[in-house]
Amino acid sequence: MKVITETPRLIIREFTLADAPAVLHFNTPKEVNRYTGDAGVCTTLTDAENIIRNIWLVEYQQYGFGRWAVVVKDTNTVIGFCGFKNETRINAVDIGYRLHPDYWGIGLATEANQACIDYAKKHMDLDTVYADVVDANQGSINVVIKLGMTYHSQYQEGECNVNRYVISLKANKSAKNG
Results as ranks from 00 to 15, higher is better:
1 M>S: 14
4 I>P: 02
5 T>Q: 06
8 P>D: 15
10 L>R: 03
12 I>C: 11
13 R>Q: 09
15 F>G: 06
18 A>E: 15
18 A>F: 05
19 D>S: 07
24 L>W: 09
25 H>Y: 13
26 F>Y: 15
27 N>G: 02
28 T>A: 14
30 K>S: 12
31 E>S: 08
32 V>Q: 08
36 T>D: 04
37 G>F: 04
38 D>Y: 13
38 D>W: 15
40 G>A: 06
43 T>P: 04
44 T>Q: 07
46 T>S: 13
48 A>V: 03
49 E>F: 00
50 N>K: 13
50 N>F: 01
50 N>P: 01
57 L>R: 03
60 Y>D: 02
62 Q>C: 04
63 Y>D: 14
65 F>R: 04
67 R>E: 09
67 R>F: 15
70 V>W: 00
71 V>P: 08
71 V>T: 14
71 V>Q: 15
74 D>E: 15
74 D>C: 02
78 V>N: 10
79 I>E: 11
80 G>F: 04
85 K>L: 12
87 E>S: 09
87 E>M: 10
89 R>W: 11
89 R>C: 04
90 I>T: 05
91 N>G: 01
92 A>C: 04
92 A>P: 00
92 A>T: 00
94 D>I: 03
95 I>W: 10
98 R>E: 05
100 H>R: 07
100 H>W: 03
101 P>T: 02
105 G>Q: 06
106 I>N: 13
107 G>D: 12
107 G>W: 09
108 L>T: 03
109 A>H: 03
110 T>R: 07
110 T>C: 10
110 T>Y: 13
111 E>P: 02
112 A>G: 07
113 N>K: 06
114 Q>A: 14
116 C>N: 11
119 Y>P: 01
123 H>D: 08
124 M>E: 12
125 D>M: 11
127 D>I: 06
129 V>I: 15
131 A>R: 03
132 D>P: 00
133 V>L: 05
134 V>Y: 01
134 V>E: 11
134 V>L: 00
136 A>H: 03
141 I>K: 12
147 L>V: 01
147 L>F: 08
150 T>L: 06
154 Q>V: 13
156 Q>P: 00
157 E>S: 14
161 N>R: 13
163 N>A: 11
163 N>S: 11
164 R>T: 15
164 R>L: 04
166 V>L: 14
